[in-house]
Design a protein around this nucleic acid. Structure first.
Length: 265
DNA sequence: ATGGTAGGTATCCTA
């Protein structure tokens, strides 16, 4: 059985109806994981999702900020929204897909502008959420679960994940402390970076471009902030991965584009 | 070195 999973930071799902239709029609994921839906669950566009074939969904949203959702053509089980750092922000859904695959859809805090946890609470929160997740996954290491961890992790770990490595060393999303913290999370369960298994790490690859650029495509000052990781037991099922760069040029685009993997189970 | 755009909310927050 072929399973296609896509992650996309929509940056408000209510104003991305056309983009959501294109993702459903052109990428056709079986499971679509959303971040920054920015909407309470009772105002989520459920009927549109159902019209596009996503009869199964789990919403974990809030007003104005954050918000994650999983839309699926296949039944979902044991769905829950998980909170971290003692906050009620909606940034994490855990659920089970058919075949016992455990999916984690994450929206890691962006972290503000100043890369110093002592003076910037948003940066401290970013590192603390990653550290709490690291402890949680480390405590499960070796349990043999078939895990997919994906979402907007708001960190570009490789030199080729940013348009200019040297220029971004002190820019939140690519600082050494963030990269090291993300690598600790990855090592906690020996997660495989699925997209970089398919697209060579030597090649520049971005999933986000700022709205502030005059011409995002020409300047191409992007970053790879959106990731799909697989647990070691699930990695052999990986057959393909894609970043839908052209989605950044759609009418009324999100600043993030969809990232997709195909698994053969 | 600076300021640039976008979305949600309600006059300013976050990204």
């Amino acid at each position: 059985m072929r399973l296609r999973i896509t992650t996309w930071n929509a940056n408000s799902i209510r104003i991305r109806e056309a983009a959501l239709r294109r993702i459903a029609g052109e990428i056709r994921p079986d499971v679509l994981c959303l971040q920054e839906t920015k909407v309470p669950d009772d105002r989520f566009p459920r009927s549109l999702a159902e019209e596009l074939g996503y009869r199964h969904m789990f919403l974990h949203g809030q007003k104005a900020y954050n918000g994650v959702a999983v839309l699926s053509r296949l039944p979902l089980a044991d769905c829950e929204g998980i909170h971290w750092c003692g906050l009620d922000q909606c940034r994490h859904i855990r659920c089970l897909l058919p075949g016992g695959i455990e999916l984690h859809n994450l929206y890691i805090p962006a972290g503000g502008d100043i890369p110093d946890p002592e003076v910037n609470p948003k940066f401290r929160h970013k590192l603390e959420m990653l550290e709490e997740l690291t402890g949680w996954f480390a405590s499960r290491r070796g349990d043999g679960a078939r895990l997919v961890l994906l979402g907007d992790l708001n960190i570009a770990p490789l030199e080729t994940d940013v348009w200019n490595h040297r220029a971004l060393l002190k820019v939140v999303s690519h600082t050494p402390v963030e990269v090291e913290t993300l690598e600790r999370l990855q090592r906690a369960y020996a997660f495989v970076d699925a997209v970089r298994r398919i697209i060579p790490p030597e090649r520049k690859l971005f999933t986000w471009w700022s709205y502030r650029a005059r011409d995002w495509s020409k300047s191409d000052r992007g970053r790879r902030l959106d990731h799909i990781w697989l647990s070691p037991g699930l990695a052999p099922a990986l057959v393909d991965a894609h970043v839908r760069r052209d989605a950044r040029g759609w009418e009324a685009p999100s600043d993030h584009v969809p990232v997709t993997v195909d698994l053969e189970l």
